[in-house]
Design a protein around this nucleic acid. Sequence first.
DNA 1: CATTTTACCTAACACTGTTAGCAAATGTAA
DNA 2: TTACATTTGCTAACAGTGTTAGGTAAAATG
Lengths: 199, 199
Amino acid sequence: MGISERRLREKEKLRSAILGTAWRMVTDEGWQSLSIRRIADAIEYSVPVIYDHFENKEAILFEFAKEGFQLLAKKIEEAKAKTKDPAEQLRLIAYAYWDFAARYKEHYKLMYGLGMQGCEVEKCLPEKTTFRKLVIEPITELIEKGNNPKANPCLKYYTFWSILHGLISIKNMRGNAVSDEINKMVMDDAIAGFVKNLN
Amino acid sequence: MGISERRLREKEKLRSAILGTAWRMVTDEGWQSLSIRRIADAIEYSVPVIYDHFENKEAILFEFAKEGFQLLAKKIEEAKAKTKDPAEQLRLIAYAYWDFAARYKEHYKLMYGLGMQGCEVEKCLPEKTTFRKLVIEPITELIEKGNNPKANPCLKYYTFWSILHGLISIKNMRGNAVSDEINKMVMDDAIAGFVKNLN
DNA sequence: CATTTTACCTAACACTGTTAGCAAATGTAA
DNA sequence: TTACATTTGCTAACAGTGTTAGGTAAAATG
């Protein structure tokens, strides 16, 4: 009865080939160049085979978006685990977020629809919630320790995220017109201000 | 010799018809639905006529982007003119920016490529520089008056803009999942924190 | 061995942006 | 008025896109 298992393996292999090829295209030439037909060409199968593995093109994009959200959550978790000081945690989280967006640029663009038509990422709620919880925790701690206990952690989380996302979006837009050093200085400054304001 | 002038007027009229039709499509059905062919259908001309007035589709998008940048600069200018207190100016500018992004949603998406493939907006430098100058001025003033004169206005401007753009981007992403009140509270909080940190 | 399932392909549909080439109308000059 | 040149607008095509209907041949199943 190894036959059907071999078949499953082969099917899985084809699926991986599709995703692998797609990913190579994206990193080489950007999301714009990704097309079902070109994937089919590259894996040396006909076009409808792709649709045996993915409902449509968006389903392929979604796969990468999910990967991105999971990876981001992991990175944030790792960064946070490095210290117990909540202020330091927030700083490390911000760095990790920044690093993720720089290292996995195409993922980030897809996840948040930067300069491209994003895909429906509503289904990534679990991963997003993880991120949210990881950030809200140190914020809550800092608020409790600070002298402004009426501050709303959820609201502050939103602010924190907005700062990061705004910086990264603008950085992505401008290409390399502004040096990374300056960009990082802006982030440092913004996060320092944010943390200071929590007290 | 009014003939050639009439012709020019008619040509201009057709150009307006193209832009007007395009804009109606965008507001009715989003950027995604905008196509040269549908514009041609709507104005009851054949497709190549569009190309007599615009080099390509991007040139049409660019027209709206430029309009957006100009309008934004105007709104910011008006908001700033309402007071002479730099802190208050920054608050009013932030409100105006927010209001612009809400009122001219499709413009904003196009200008910064949110959830769509944006167009080359590098040519809008004058309008962008206007915005930049309008914001940097009160920031510089505040820094000079404050007790942290070594702060870099340019860097702070970048931070200010990032906060606003981040908030708006995230708001746009989430659709109506978060109420406008909360969104505005986040902005108020973030801007207040930013201004406080300038001193 | 017959039947069903699976794998896979060709060819099409309905779109997209863009352009070559032609025909008719109009303007200009002899 | 006639001859030429320009403008205006069109049809039809090219080269892509995502997606799917329908058919064939191989493989697995009863």
